[in-house]
Simulated scan of single mutants.
Amino acid sequence: MRTAAIVPAAGRGERLGPGRPKALRLLGGAPLLVHAVRALARARGVSLVVVAAPGPDVPAVERLLADFEWGADVEVVPGGESRHSSVGRALAALPADVDVVLVHDAARPLAPPELVEAVASTVRQRADACVPVVPLTDTVKEVAADTVLRTLDRSQLRAVQTPQGFRRAVLAKAHAWAAEASAEELGAITDDAGLVERLGIAVTAIPGSEEAFKVTRPLDLVLAEALLARRRADGAR
């Protein structure tokens, strides 16, 4: 089964501060996007990575990625106004022989290739959809305005990471529904697994990785720099 990966990278990422799009913020001298694509391309089962970039920036992103050597083919397509539409456009651009599709956030630049392969293998072997998850360490409370309504049982809760993996037909069906859905129907769905769940399709969870954390705020970038420096000291690129 041929596996391809999609990286939606058309967002601005304002919580990281003003300036260039989040995917192009530098980490260890290279954009977050470069690190994310490298993690995907190094997974032995991934043969193609498709990046959905802001429309006007497609030529610049193509030139940026052309400066690096990858273990897989890398292509760039214009993204959409939302994450869902960017993934949908990249999905439509995949060759017909792709059977398994991974979707990965550029904002998770240090996800280990081993995690990428674990997600892909789970879909190839037994699942329609797969997400990596990690336990919550903080107490979680449901709050309305400034009033705590209840404390949730965190033993049943997990934080979801990327890459998320899908059989192509399942992901295509989910995005076909999303393209026609109203804002109310989409509601608080923020990831591709959420779209699949909305169709009543089971999603399999596997153990995630602490290194696959999301770079959202400036402090996250400091942590990513420290982790990257440790990797380089250990001999990894």
Score class of each variant (00 low, 15 high):
4 A>H: 04
10 A>T: 11
10 A>C: 08
21 P>E: 08
21 P>I: 03
24 L>S: 09
29 G>C: 07
36 A>R: 06
38 R>L: 04
40 L>R: 04
41 A>F: 00
58 V>Y: 14
60 A>P: 08
62 E>S: 11
62 E>Q: 15
65 L>D: 02
81 E>Q: 12
88 G>M: 00
90 A>T: 05
95 P>F: 06
98 V>L: 10
99 D>C: 02
103 V>M: 10
107 A>K: 13
120 A>H: 11
121 S>D: 14
122 T>H: 12
128 D>M: 11
128 D>L: 14
131 V>M: 04
135 P>D: 05
137 T>R: 15
139 T>I: 12
140 V>Q: 00
142 E>P: 00
142 E>M: 14
144 A>K: 15
144 A>W: 15
147 T>N: 03
149 L>S: 03
150 R>N: 09
151 T>N: 05
152 L>D: 06
152 L>H: 09
154 R>H: 02
158 R>A: 12
162 T>Q: 05
166 F>G: 05
167 R>T: 01
181 A>Y: 07
193 A>T: 03
194 G>P: 10
196 V>R: 01
197 E>W: 11
198 R>T: 02
207 P>L: 03
213 F>R: 00
216 T>L: 10
220 D>P: 10
223 L>Y: 11
225 E>V: 00
226 A>G: 07
234 D>H: 09
235 G>D: 10
